[in-house]
Every structure is written in C-alpha cells, then in structure tokens.
C-alpha cells in the first residue's frame, strides 16, 4: 500500500542546535501513528516542516506520493501545538474562514460542530471559549475538509480529566472511520490507548519505530498474593520463575519464556495454595519508552 507520508533524511537546524536530525519514516493509510518524545525532542518542529511552516534545512518528504505543496495541505487537517483562531471572530465565522482557505463547502460546518459538541456556542466569540472548547474547535476545523489525514499535536494539553477523556473518545471515533491520524504526544498512556504504531524521538533523532502491539510482547510479569507462610519460597520453587519482587504487599513474579500466569496458577493449586490475587501485567508503553530513551 502506498504510504500516506514518506519522510527521507529530514533535518532542521536552528543555528547550532539540531532540532531534527536525519529523520526517515513512513506512515501507511489507516494507521494511528503516535510520535513520542520528551519536550524539545523535535516533534512539533517535524510536524511544522510537514505542514509548510518551518523550512527544512535538508531532506525531503512526500504526502500521498506527491511533492508537498499548499494544495496537498488542503487535504490534511492539522492542529499544531495549541489551537489558533481569530479571537474576535465567532467559532462559526472562524470555521467559515477556514472553509474558504481550504476551499471546501461551508455546509460541512454544522456537521463538525456537532461532532465536537460546540453547536450551541458557535456564535460566541472564540476568545470567550474555555481551553477544552478551543481544543475541540481546533479539531472541528481540522476535520472541516473531511481530510484523509489528521495531525494532532498534544491535543489534550492543559485539559482536565473529563476533557482528556472526551478528546480521546473523539480520536477513537475518527480513527474508526478509517482516517490516518498522526498524534504527537508525551502522554504515553494516551498513545498506547489510541495508536497502532509509534515512533520515539530523542533530541531530534529517531530512536524507535514500530507497532504498538509489540510493546506488550516479551516476558510476562504476574502479580500474585496468597495467605500462606513462606509464599516467597514457594514461588521461587516454581520452574517458570525468573525473579521475584515484593511490591505493595504483593509479589511481582517475572516469568521465564514460555511460561504464563495460568501455569503459575496451576502450580499453586497443585501445591494446595489458592491465590487471593492474581493479575497478568504486560509491559506498558511507559516502561518501554523509558527503556528506549535510556538505551539510546
């Protein structure tokens, strides 16, 4: 399948600082692509180059196999950093202006306003909106031309837990329609919940690139608790145990390859012990992310 976005050796220097260094990656149709990295790792600069507001120092990229021009940008919906609108215009008027720039019908406006639940505030000036409403209006504006690709940069920045949940639901809803989404974030939990693929940037370098599914693979950890004496030793005698850690009153058992939680459960049962608590822990993206950053 042809890549939606293909980046080759993209580089941006600000003076002596290498903000993005020789970045190459591809985003395929239908992916929800997470871009991770600490603050200042070059995520926004990369997206800025892809959207024509930052001039690259070197390298190239194509959208839908085409050279990037402003015509191509009209097919992409993007919110970089924070929402930007004319504060003295109403939400509706701002979207009308966006529709003129993107050359798409104004008839789309009520649809997107409804999606982000802003219909009843559409005639109020943008400057009167709360942060969450501003973020939602930005998403509405990005969706206005029914883009095949959506770029969101920290869409939940500064939102309260309710707002975060709302935006996350919205992203899932949009992804379910088959749109390709590129999501830059430093909230790992968020990326793990919504993304299919992810890339990790560190000081402008690409240090990891792959599907999110693979994060959970590899060794399993089982959290277990039983009210018996010398439970520790019992667990150690299990053939599948590679190491044991005591945490928060329960035991974290790292399993050897090929062993799973059900093997441990069976073992305990055969020994006449009934576990009062047993949870399989997969490795989180957070853990993997920190490992990636530490090892690079």
């Amino acid at each position: 399948m042809e890549a939606v976005l293909s980046i080759k050796n993209l580089t941006k220097n600000f003076g002596r600082i290498k903000a993005v260094n020789n970045l190459s990656l591809e985003v395929k149709p239908g992916q929800v692509f997470g871009m991770l990295g600490p603050n200042g790792s070059g995520k926004t600069t990369t997206l800025g180059m892809l959207m024509g507001v930052v001039n690259p120092t070197g390298g190239e990229f194509t959208w839908f196999g085409e050279e990037p021009t402003h015509h191509v940008r009209k097919k992409i919906g993007a919110v970089l950093e924070h929402p930007i609108f004319y504060p003295y215009l109403s939400g509706q008027k701002n979207l009308e202006l966006n529709a003129m720039i993107k050359q798409c019908p104004e008839a789309n406006i009520p649809k997107v306003l409804e999606l982000v639940e802003l219909l009843d505030r559409k005639d109020d000036k943008y400057k009167t909106y709360s942060l969450g409403m501003k973020q939602r209006l930005a998403i509405a504006s990005a969706l206005l031309n029914d883009p095949t690709v959506l770029i969101l940069d920290e869409p939940t920045n500064g939102l309260d837990p309710m707002g975060i949940a709302e935006i996350r639901e919205l992203i899932k809803k949009i992804a379910a329609n088959g749109k390709t989404i590129i999501l830059a974030s430093h909230l790992l939990d968020e990326v793990q919940k919504v993304c299919t693929h992810f890339a990790v940037l560190k000081k402008g370098n690409l240090v990891h690139y792959g599907p999110v599914d693979e994060v959970g693979k590899g060794e399993e950890t089982v959290e277990v608790l039983a009210e018996v004496e010398n439970f520790n030793e019992l667990l150690l005698s299990f053939a599948g145990t590679s190491s044991i850690n005591r945490e928060n009153g329960s035991y974290q058992v790292a399993m050897r390859d090929g062993f799973h939680s059900k093997d441990l459960n069976k073992f305990l049962f055969e020994k006449g012990v009934v576990a009062s608590h047993l949870i399989t822990r997969k490795k989180t993206l957070e853990k993997q992310f920190i490992e990636i950053l530490a090892s690079s």
Partner: peptide
C-alpha cells in the same frame, strides 16, 4: 495571534 501560521497549515 499566530494566525499566519495556521493559515499556511490550512493550505494557503
């Protein structure tokens, strides 16, 4: 207002 930036992002 940084709207120049957004105008360009939007396809101007």
């Amino acid at each position: 207002y940084r709207t120049l930036r957004q105008n360009v992002i939007d396809g101007l």
